[in-house]
Every structure is written in C-alpha cells, then in structure tokens.
Design a protein around this nucleic acid. Structure first.
Lengths: 350, 350
DNA sequence: ATTAGCACTCACCTTGCAAGAGTGCTAACA
DNA sequence: TGTTAGCACTCTTGCAAGGTGAGTGCTAAT
C-alpha cells in the first residue's frame, strides 16, 4: 500500500488535531474541520489503511484515531509545515537572550529558561564542560600564614583560584621561582602531562618543598578531574512543571517516573549527546532508549564556539507536542547561542 | 473541659496511628491496637470530647477521626516520645556527612540530601550568604591585551576573580599603584563605602583612567549585590520526589501548587528564616502563612559558625509526618553541621 | 463511670442502563 | 472503480440505584 496525497492530508489532519486537542480524532471531525471534500466514510476507509500502515492507532474500538510514534515520525519528516519566526519575534528573543551577557553559564541557563517559557515544554540544556582545556598560566598570591592563593588561567580564558598550603618556610621568592618554572613549561599542557616530566626538574630546584608541591599538583589534577557540579551536573533543566500541565501526565505515577529520570543527570546527558550527528536531532516516543520517556519526544540541537561543538539545547514534551514550534525555537536558540558565544569568546580571547 | 490522662493517651494513639496509616482512625481500632483497657464506646465518648476541643476532626460523619493542626501541635508539644539516635546511627550519619569535606557548599548540600534520604521527606537547606563580608585585598594580574584579572579576597577568607577592562594604555605599574591605594584604604570596608570617599583620591592620581576605574568599581559593587544563584538561590531542595509518595499528594493539582512554590526560592527562604528564634522551629499546617503549605509541616533549625547563625536545615512533609524522627534528624544534623563548619572555619582561618 | 446494643449516616463499590461517539461493513450510486 | 449513505455494532462515559461496611451517637443497663 502506498501513501497517496489524500492519505498524507488525512494523517496530517489527524496529527495536527490531536496535537491541538489531545483527544482521539474521528472521521467526522476531520471531514468537518479540514476541507478535504470527502465524506467521513471515505476518510474512514483511508484511516483503516493508515492504521494498517502503522501510522495511527485506536485506543479502543469505538474511539477516534491517535498518531503512533511512526505516524509522528512521518509527520515530522514529510508533512510538517515549517514555522518561521517573524523578524519581530526574533528581535524579542534576541533582546531577552542578550539581556544578561555577564557570565557564559548565565547566558546558557537563561536560554534554557527562555526555551521552556516560549514552548511551554521542558527545556534541557547541556552546558559546556569547562575542564577539557589546557593550562596557560599560574600565579601565586599571598593569602595567610602558610597559605597562598593559586590563580590558574586556562587556554580557553577561564580563571580559577584555589588556596594551597605552602608551609611556613616558603618565601615569596621561592613561590615566584615555582611559578616561573610552571609557566615556562606548561603552556598548553594538561595536569597529567605535567606531573611526569616536570617533577624532577622542580624537585631539584626546590628539593625541600615536596609537601607543598604535592599539594599544588594535587589541586591541578583535581581541576581536570570530573567533579560533582561540573561534569556530572552538566544538564540544566527548565520548566519541568510544564509537564504537569500536559493531560498525558495527569497520572501521578507517570509524573513520578518522569521526574525520577530528571534527577539522573547522567541519563539526561546521554539524551543530549548526539556524538554522531551535529545538528538537529529528533527522538520520538519509543525511539528513545529509556522506557520512562516512551510518551515523550525530544528535540535537540548543538551549539558551538568557533565551530567546535560544546553543548546542546533541547526541549522535552509529550509525543503529542507542537513539533514545528519546538523545532523552530530549538534551532533558532542554538544558532543565537552559537553566535553570542562565538562573539564573546572571540572578544575575550582575541 | 480538661485534658485528663486518658484523653491524652487517646489523642496520642490517634496521631500515631494516623501518621502510620494515613487512614482516619476509629474507636475500635484504638481499643484493639493500643491497650487502654477500655471499650470502643468509652473511647467514642472521649473522642467526642477531643473533637469539641478542636484537637481532632471527622472528614465525614461515618469516618474515623483525624488529628487537626491543633491536635498535631498538642502532640508535638506535650505527647510525643522523643526519639534518640543510637550511637551507631550517629556514627553512620557522621561518616556520611564528613565523607566530603572539600567545599563548604558541598557539605551543606550533601547534608540536605542526607536528611531527605533518612526521613523520606523533602529537605530544605538555607545556605550561608557569602556576600555580606567586607573586602580585604585586591590584586591585579596580567591576562590579555587591555584586560587584567582582578583577584579579591574578602575578610571571611573567600577568594574571587573577575576579568576587568583596563584599556590598552594602562601599565602594570599603574595597576600596582591602584592596587596599593585600594589595599591601603579598603581593609574592612564594603564596596558602597569605597565609592564615595575613595573616588576623588584615586582620580587625582590616575586621572585618565576613569573608564577603567568605573569598570573595577562596577565589578566590586556587583560582587556585593544580591545576584542570581547566590542570594536569590540560597535554598537547596532535596528529595522533592518523596512528596509524590505521600498519599496526600496523589492529586496532581496539589503537586502542581506545591512544586510551583518549590520554584520560588524567595518564599522558601522566608520559610527558613526564623530571625526571631534561634533553635528548633516547628510550623504545622495552617500555621504556615502560605496556603499551598496548608497540608504541610516544616521542621527547621539553624546552624552556626562560631556561634553566629549562618543558615538552617529543614524538612518539609505532610502534616501527617513522623515528627519525632524529623525533629531528631534535623536537630542532630544542624548540630553536626555547626560542629563541622566551626572546625573547618577555624582551621582555614586560624 | 463504663459499656453493650442499636439505629443511623455516609463513603464506596458494584451493577445496570442509556447516551454518545466512532467504527466497519454493505449496498447503492456516479 | 471510487465514493457515499445507512446501519448495526462496540466501547467508553456518566449517572442512578442498591448493597455493604465502617464508624458514629445515643440510650439504657451495669
């Protein structure tokens, strides 16, 4: 059996009506609401065909039809009207998004908030991991007796500080020497590399500072290790409450299993990590590996800095979601984010 | 009418049974489960009295009785058996809590997680605000053309860094002068105070650096302003999902209004801010100002560093919660936290 | 003062019934 | 041959009726 034009129109009508109303849609409804110029009976015949093709299904014998996951897939791939944002809408979004450019983290999270507000869905944002870059500079500053502030600059421009124990017998001059050695040798290297080669050299110059050096190297290593709140919590979630407004989640058990998943940051990360594909990604219902998401769809896209993928933005909603809107928003947001971040990065780094 | 001993026993039985089963409890149940040596009829008479006193109520004519908010209050104030943690339990908790002593923030949040796990309730933790302290030191470090890293040390020992625009015409020497002026003048002052008196002095020395100075002062000011993610998000929430397991929240609308409140960090802060009372605080049902919490009780207590109150830990659950357990845990946790933090603070700061 | 007994109330569950929505099939029609 | 009208059928939904059980309040006896 083939999909002729009329079947397509009918499928499209079913999907759109179901997205709008969340009620199974019957043949009479279609023939009335959508002008196809045929009677309900004809539509019924076609619907029987569509069901045979696996594109729609019946909750029970005497209910209307509901799109299956496959049906949504067909709709998204072939039938959907693309939605274009007007210049005005774009302007509003841009204003909102650039309102707070202070911190990269903030822009990114705010984007998530914005996405969930605009779509009335839940937004997922994979934040960049900021530990993969190499060291660039180290400075030591006085802090307290026996302690110093170690300021590190990475090659992506981020700056961090840590308190290090230096013992009571380390003079500022010795610290300066240490910093110099580091800075001479480390440009562009990672902590692990440092440790191997550098140790001997430093030990010979400052042989008695072993304990302090261990402290410094320990901190450097930890800076590059995955750590709670950074690599394990890379996903920002926004508008989770929106899910409670969806009629498909009036059942508390579904809410429970969904929200449980929301707390598993690692799984969310996998969801957003389309290593294979750089661009827009759509996962519908049971296409999703996780059973708790079998009634959900996820639209996600990656954002970049200078062409390098560093994270992604996504929305999660019931399979019965407004795909064209979600896709348009996610697409536009990631593009804006890419642009903003690339600009900022360029400015910051020259 | 007075509360005699038997009335107390009966009320206690009602509260305890209702806490355990979440079902209205009848006279027969009490006479069977609890050994009072009287018949259901007698208990019925007493129950009628208790109802008249406003301590219990009937959901409907032919149901058992349920404690009223007042009833819980009486139970908590007068009847409750105090629960004492065994040394073994204390040890387990202490092990858990000290497992991650790396960062103050982490210990505190982890405490919250622990509380919710142990109680099966939702935990609320008010984190310390870290912006109230005064400046102590400023350093400038080279960063990039036209930019510098400004490292600030506050008098509570925290270190922050920011990138400041210094323009292309500022020499390292000039920066040094600036830092010196700051350091001479600022010890112990807040940004606002700085601005007024200091400006003239600095302007006269570095008159052409106006733009750069404005940048630096702007950042300083912002450091002391309430800011997203710090003062507005001072409350950590743990185990919110536990609420979904409570039978009183099988209704999705209740969940919605509760979770909406969870997103309003400011309100949660008020909830945890018992300025008036330092110690354990119990709010039952409608004693709570917010209507969405009318079925909830909150137990909270403050924790301290060196005797100064800096935050609090609380649990939130249905009014029908295990008060003695919750109180014991909250109490013990805040005490442990106080101890741990005071130790750490002492060590770090000397 | 306590308790046994009894009538009463009310939520809850089951059952039955009617209405309504929607289908599939068949036969007629263009 | 494709389309349509008609009709019987199915299944959900809502509602009302009746039975059940838990629990009460009251009264009278102990």
């Amino acid at each position: 059996m083939q999909m002729d034009e009329r079947k397509q129109k009918i499928l499209k009508a079913i999907v759109q009506d179901y997205i709008a109303t969340a009620e199974p849609v019957g043949s009479r409804t279609i023939s009335k609401k959508f002008e196809l110029g045929v009677s309900p009976a004809t539509i019924r015949n076609e619907m029987a065909d569509l069901e045979e093709l696996g594109l729609i299904e019946q909750p029970h014998t005497s209910a209307g039809r509901v799109p299956s996951d496959l049906g949504y897939r067909y709709y998204v791939d072939c039938l959907m009207d693309p939605l274009v944002l007007s210049e005005k809408e774009k302007k509003i979004i841009n204003q909102e998004i650039t309102k707070r450019l202070d911190e990269v983290q903030e822009v990114i999270e705010y984007t998530g908030k914005l996405v969930s507000q605009v779509t009335n869905l839940t937004s997922l944002v994979l934040k960049p991991k900021n530990r993969e870059s190499a060291l660039n500079k180290i400075y030591f500053l006085p802090y307290d007796t026996g302690k110093a502030i170690m300021v590190t600059v990475k090659d992506n421009g981020t700056v961090e500080n840590n308190i290090v124990d230096i013992g009571n017998d380390t003079s500022p001059e010795e610290l300066q020497i240490l910093a110099n050695i580091f800075n001479d040798r480390l440009s562009g290297s990672k902590a692990q590399d440092l440790k191997k080669g550098l140790l001997n050299e430093i030990y010979s110059e400052l042989s008695k500072k072993r304990r302090m050096l261990d402290g410094v190297l320990g901190i450097l290593e930890r800076m590059f290790e995955p750590k709670d709140g950074e690599n394990t919590e890379r996903v920002y979630l926004g508008g989770t409450l929106n899910m409670l407004n969806q009629p498909e989640f009036k059942d508390i058990d579904k809410v429970k299993s969904l929200f449980s998943l929301f707390e598993e940051n690692r799984k969310l990360q996998e969801l957003l990590n389309p290593d294979d594909y750089q661009g827009l990604n759509i996962t519908i219902g049971s296409e999703n590996p996780d059973l708790a998401f079998k009634d959900c769809s996820i639209i996600s896209a990656t954002y970049h800095i200078n062409g390098k993928q560093i994270g992604s933005v996504g929305v999660l909603g019931p399979t019965r979601m407004d795909y064209s809107k979600a896709i348009t928003i996610v697409d536009y947001m990631t593009k804006s984010l890419t642009e903003i971040l690339t600009n900022k990065y360029r400015r910051q780094q020259t």
